[in-house]
């Protein structure tokens, strides 16, 4: 299990990274934490001619409050989602999801940008970006653009990133006092990719749900919003009836993969159980807040 030979370059700026990519004639991969790329190289599932190590580009770092959104640099480590005070205060769903991401040593080095750019439908952070309504800041040779999370995840491991483009940062609308957040997942073992997982944001108007955003992982070819379930909740009292309707509606929202170990029907069933538990947990919170 040894990677094929490659060249390694370490640009200091985004512009240098683009130059290196152009020079490689398309046969290059960007390397950030490398914790998904390194196994793929070892297994020879990927074999780029050049690895462009972007981990030392300052412009990709930093977590700063920018008006009513939080700008989170793409090189932010998973572990920082557990410890950064801005993330805890303004993007609580990231904080809630982070302990479920793999194991401590992986979180030390894996980056949010790497995880989101890979767009593994079983990963936590892509789904969380959807639930938070984040925007992706993307840099290309022609300048920067922003893509909402909904428009970013296109298909299995496919994103709005064009070849050579870099994910620079996430812009996350900051949490408001009326927001309620919940995240959980069912995984066979601690740190495994989940059989199903979900992040929930409810914007509450007293005991009533003003707006719901629910995103699932391991439920389709991409991280996926549960829009029909969200509709069942919007404008309704958060009670057992509304929750049951939202659970039912998931059949129209999720298109889970099907395999012997985890049949699609099981993922849908577990998705419903999980959603019920997450929303049920928020009833109590809503009551306390009211």
């Amino acid at each position: 299990m040894k990677a094929r030979a490659f060249r390694y370059v370490r640009p200091a700026t985004i512009a240098e990274a683009f130059d290196a990519f152009a020079e490689a004639g398309g046969e290059a991969s960007y390397l950030a934490g490398g914790h998904s790329l390194a196994p793929a190289l070892a297994l020879r599932l990927q074999a780029p001619d050049v690895l462009i190590d972007i981990a030392h580009i300052g412009a990709l770092r930093g977590i700063v409050l920018d008006g009513d959104s939080l700008r989170i640099g793409a090189l932010t480590r998973h572990a920082e989602a557990l410890t950064d005070p801005h993330i805890a205060a303004h993007a609580p769903l990231l904080r809630m999801a982070a302990p479920h991401v793999a194991h401590p040593a992986i979180r030390n080095r894996g980056t949010l940008g790497g995880s989101v750019a890979l767009a593994d439908p079983a990963a936590e952070f892509p789904a969380v970006m959807l639930a938070m309504g984040a925007e992706m800041e993307i840099a290309g040779p022609d300048g920067h653009r922003r893509v909402p999370a909904e428009a970013f995840f296109l298909d299995l491991y496919q994103t709005a990133l064009e070849p050579g483009e870099l994910l620079v940062a996430f812009h996350v609308p900051i949490a408001r006092p009326s927001h309620r957040w919940a995240f959980d997942e069912f995984a066979r073992r601690r740190g495994d990719y989940a059989v199903i997982g979900a992040g929930v944001m409810l914007d509450m108007d007293g005991p009533t749900v003003a707006e719901a955003r629910i995103a699932f992982l391991s439920a389709a070819a991409t991280p996926v919003r549960a829009r029909q379930a969200e509709s069942c909740l919007a404008g309704r009292l958060l009670d057992a009836g509304a929750i049951a309707d939202a659970q039912q509606a998931l059949a129209g929202d999720l298109d889970p993969p099907d395999d012997e170990q985890t049949p699609a029907a099981m993922r849908l069933h577990l998705g419903r159980v999980l959603l019920g538990r997450l929303l049920g947990g928020l009833i109590d919170n809503a009551a306390v807040a009211a």
Binding site: R10, G34, A38, D53, P104, A105, N108, R109
Partner: peptide, 21 residues
């Protein structure tokens, strides 16, 4: 986890990092 070492003080998988990094 058998290859864990400290890189700049943090536990890191030696197999997930190329030495040049």
């Amino acid at each position: 986890g058998a290859c864990l070492v400290l890189v700049d003080g943090k536990a890191t998988h030696g197999c997930l990092v190329f030495a040049v990094q």
